[in-house]
Simulated scan of single mutants.
Amino acid sequence: QPRASRLVSQGVELGFLRREADPDDARRTLIALTDKGRAITNRFRGAQRENVDQALSTFSEDERAQLASLLTRLADAWPK
């Protein structure tokens, strides 16, 4: 809890996050991305996608299908 609170506070200070009142419960605070935070998130996701595309560039279509199947099995078997 303390670590999460510090991370949120840092995100607010840096302009990546904003705190909002919870309309359903005044005791709670909601955390939302700012436009600046959303832009960084989108760049990160784009970089991740580029890295995955690069890593898979030498895989055949059959290998990609096999990897997708195995990852699906792993996700389905993951303890919840």
Rank of each mutant, 00 (worst) to 15 (best):
K80L: 15
D53N: 12
A65H: 12
A4C: 09
R6D: 03
R38C: 00
E61F: 03
T58F: 05
R73V: 04
A21V: 14
R19H: 09
P79E: 14
T29C: 06
R64Y: 00
I40Q: 01
T41I: 00
A55P: 02
P23G: 00
E20V: 13
A55Q: 06
V52T: 11
D53H: 07
A21K: 15
N42T: 05
L17H: 09
E13Y: 08
D25K: 05
I31L: 13
D76E: 15
G11D: 00
L71P: 03
S69G: 12
A55E: 14
W78S: 15
T72E: 14
Q66V: 08
S69E: 10
N51Y: 06
D62A: 14
T34M: 01
A47I: 09
E13M: 05
L30P: 01
Q54M: 09
L74I: 15
E63S: 13
Q54S: 06
A55V: 05
D24S: 10
D62R: 09
L30S: 04
D25W: 02
K36P: 02
F16N: 08
D76N: 13
L67T: 07
Q54H: 12
F16R: 04
S5C: 05
A68R: 09
L17Y: 12
D53L: 12
I31P: 10
K36F: 02
D62G: 11
I40V: 11
P2G: 05
L7Q: 11
R3H: 14
A39H: 03
T72P: 03
R73T: 12
L7F: 01
R38A: 14
S69Y: 06
T41R: 05
A21H: 09
P79N: 13
D53Q: 12
R19K: 14
A26T: 10
P2Y: 00
W78A: 15
A32K: 03
G46L: 01
T41V: 09
S5R: 09
